[in-house]
Design a protein around this nucleic acid. Structure first.
Lengths: 135, 135
DNA sequence: ACATTTGCAATATATTTTATTACAGTTATG
DNA sequence: CATAACTGTAATAAAATATATTGCAAATGT
């Protein structure tokens, strides 16, 4: 995973919402984020995959929002940038011969599932339009 | 940060809650987690710092819960294992000359602050005793 | 034609996590 | 009171992950 995926994608969408109706170049976006343009394009590929933006190649090309900022919520961004939000797992397989080791991950998963739903609900209430107004 | 901090600490506490009134060795705990004992001791140091466990050096030494599992909630664990839960930030300082770059991090922070509070509230409702019963 | 841009893959660098090693200090027990 | 079994902690190494860079094909406006 890219750890800054949600932040980067939100940043990109905010820029696009600020300048609708024009194609914005990934180099320009990268300049605002201060990261490498290739990383920006990777996130844009993800946004395209989910039909939030369209892009145009060639001179004067770039990216542009398809969906309206009123209809996009931060939950949409969350969904496309996280498999699942968690509080983490220990790296290795725990010992299956220990009753705790055997079940810890499934119990943590259940816990995280609940957290995910809460985060989703909370992010649903913020549209990209609202978020963009803060700038 | 240790990305598995919350999971590891919860695992440790679950083990300790399963076997109260006895000192458990970090090597044994590490065996259940299948991670290195030194990492376990680091997390134990953190638990000690927050007065959740006590430890005894020397032969037959180990760690033991101080607080009662009914009084410890997973929010307590959350608090001592996370500075703050976030959905991430882009690694570099964004461009301060761009209105979006200039404000993105503070706006994301505000957003994450709200998420933190929700997670905290949700974890408050699960005691270590309840969590341990699932095993 | 040419400059500019996306798209994408491959590779390299940097950063972060986890593991290992080493050793000092504590304590139970024969 | 010597020894084995522990904790505690720091320093270093290795592994994993994230980010940056390079290179090039393909598209498009002028």
């Amino acid at each position: 995973m890219i750890s800054g995926k949600f932040a980067i994608t939100t940043h990109i969408l905010t820029l696009l919402a600020k300048f609708p109706n024009e194609f914005m170049a990934s180099d320009y976006i990268a300049g605002s984020l201060n990261i490498h343009p290739v990383l920006v394009r990777k996130e844009i590929a993800n946004l395209k995959k989910h039909n939030l933006v369209e892009s145009k190649e060639g001179k004067n090309g770039g990216v542009k929002l398809i969906a309206s900022p009123e209809k996009i919520t931060l939950e949409d961004v969350f969904k496309i940038t996280f498999d699942k939000a968690t509080l983490g797992f220990s790296k290795n397989e725990p010992n299956p011969e220990c009753p705790v080791g055997k079940n810890i991950n499934s119990n943590l998963n259940d816990l995280y599932e609940g957290i995910n739903q809460t985060i989703s609900k909370q992010l649903q209430s913020v549209t990209l339009a609202e978020f963009t107004e803060k700038f």
